[in-house]
Design a binder for these strands. Structure first.
Lengths: 333, 333
DNA sequence: AAACTCTGTGTAAGTGCTTACATTTCACAA
DNA sequence: TTGTGAAATGTAAGCACTTACACAGAGTTT
């Protein structure tokens, strides 16, 4: 069942059918109704490929993230997919991992799909604050389609970033720990992404403000999964630590387990703050104080930017959102 | 830069270029090398639409699940996406929610994308054990492309299901609770999907085996999120309960929080078992005993079935996998 | 009544690829 | 030298749509 069949059944030319499909104002309402009826009766659906060939687009967005099985990204993907569907866009998903070559290949591949926009989730795509050659493949992509980076920042034409002001948000959280009387605050991180560096910078500046000297022993790198984090801390956590700022909730949970194992009381002797405010946070006992990095807000911002672009208007190349501290049981404030 | 340009630059016809792209044996190695060089020099990429038009396929699979932000589905999606990518397939994702009309629309929409196979994740697509009209839209879809149901069962031509034997797996877990001496075991569930019913059936049969009379008060329906589950239990949990079997980890965590709030000791006075063995399980204190429903194994099975079909071989219409109990701190065995 | 709009519809030329079929080329046997 | 068949390449007809341009017919204007 193709456009010719419909044209014949409706007694019009294929051009008219095409116009009806595209709801062109050039067709009279009477004809439109007739053609629509025939289309429905035969449940005709235009061939996407032919349509794509003619139009050069298929109303599809590409989403690339390092790993959808991560709760933060899964949420973002779900949000993007759901919202774009409402505007009639389909979503192609690609998980890229975090290796440079893989990310590059993922972006290159998804571009071939003639997507209308590319969404990158995560700060791993902007290896160095967005200004070294490392992110060049993203800038290259932006020559073809608008690129929206969620939770990362890359400078460049046709690139629109929405991110949580991790630096300031972290600084605020660390300031609260200091106000609690904590002096030996561990910065617990895993990867060395742009956002991790922003957080570290916020952490350091909060310490500096308070006149607390920097201490390299308090910049702690741990492995990724909860159990390993606990082990790493058991093996090497400096004894004087009385506060832990973790760059994600998983790390924070590992820290909590470490505390339990060593008998350190939380939050009496040790405060812990996580990041992302995932479901993990409320599973813990005590429940984890965590920073909501506003994933949905960032997605919403990106979507709005894209819609604005679609209407031929300008969008702001970078939008910062402040995170919000969700105070729970692992801190005293 | 299209096939004509390449043909001209390489001094061959477009047919030859096309053959080179498709690595046809009809082209001499010499010509192949020459054409390939030109393609690379101009980084030519065939147009997917034109290719799709000619071939009728674009090497794409469709994935439909109720909600990717659910950890279980996110994992499955990630696994499918990653593995199919290795075979050169792209993935289109669509979250359908759990409303009949939405699921139906989601499947219909994704079919228009000329996918090569459809993957449905979750038992919500098989409303009644797979044999009522409710799943007819899936059977309709199966007329167009092979359908693979992960963690659900639908009978029908060209439909291939991989699922955890929830009934027996649940029965085993409940038997262990009984062996622990529990007699008043709550069956804590949220939705009424096929898999939830299977679990209930396993629960009931384990009770029956042990000669424990059925008690409707012990079939407990709770809302979805952790906090609500706790509230629901606080409001209405029968006091005699000494064991809880929850149909997912989120419910189990809610149960654990309920126990803590009421001062019931776990596992001394109350045992709790969750389902899915998600990351939530190890965040808890005590850590949650949970059933690993083998999501990756199911995905692997589906992928293998699809590859077998691709090679023109037969695949088994239904594959059962037994879940595994991960014993942790919320039970005594 | 002729000239002129305007609206609605049709014609036909793309869009970039695949592939059945036709044709050329070439090695080798007769 | 010619003939033969296989291997390599080209030609052209799809594939299902969009859209610039052409044109017909109904009103309007003069």
């Amino acid at each position: 069942m193709n456009i010719y069949d419909i044209a014949e059944l409706a007694g019009v030319s294929i051009a008219t059918v095409s116009r009806v499909v595209n709801d062109s104002p050039l067709v009279s309402d009477k004809t439109k109704a007739r053609v629509r009826k025939v289309m429905e009766e035969n449940n005709y659906v235009p061939n996407v490929f032919a349509r794509g060939l003619g139009l050069g687009t298929m109303k599809t967005i590409g989403i690339v993230c390092p790993d959808v099985s991560d709760a933060y990204m899964a949420k973002a993907v779900a949000y993007l997919e759901k919202n774009f569907r409402e505007y009639g866009y389909d979503s192609i998903l690609q998980c890229s991992g975090r290796e440079y070559e893989d990310m590059r290949a993922a972006v290159a591949n998804i571009l071939n799909k003639k997507i209308d926009a590319l969404f990158l989730i995560g700060s791993c795509y902007c290896v160095d604050g967005g200004d070294t050659a490392a992110a060049d493949y993203v800038r290259e992509a932006a020559k073809q389609v608008p690129v929206f980076v969620i939770n990362g920042s890359i400078s460049g034409d046709n690139i629109y970033c929405a991110l949580c002001d991790d630096r300031e948000t972290t600084a605020q959280a660390v300031r609260e720990l200091i106000r609690e009387g904590r002096r030996n605050i561990l910065f617990l991180h895993h990867s060395d992404t742009f956002s991790a560096r922003q957080k570290r910078s916020g952490y350091l500046s909060a310490l500096a403000e308070a006149g607390i000297p920097e201490n390299d022993n308090l910049l702690f790198h741990a492995r990724e999964d909860i159990e390993s984090v606990k082990q790493d801390l058991l093996a090497q956590c400096p004894p004087e630590v009385d506060g832990i700022f973790a760059t994600n909730d998983r790390l924070a949970v590992g820290a909590l387990k470490f505390a339990r194992e060593t008998g350190i009381r939380v939050p009496e002797e040790l405060s812990i703050i996580g990041y992302d405010d995932s479901e993990l946070a409320i599973c813990c006992q005590p429940e984890l104080t965590s920073i909501d990095s506003m994933g949905e807000t960032l997605c919403r911002t990106s979507i709005d930017s894209m819609l604005r672009l679609l209407r031929g208007r300008k969008a702001s190349p970078i939008t910062y959102t402040k995170g919000t501290l969700r105070r729970r049981g692992t801190t005293r404030f």
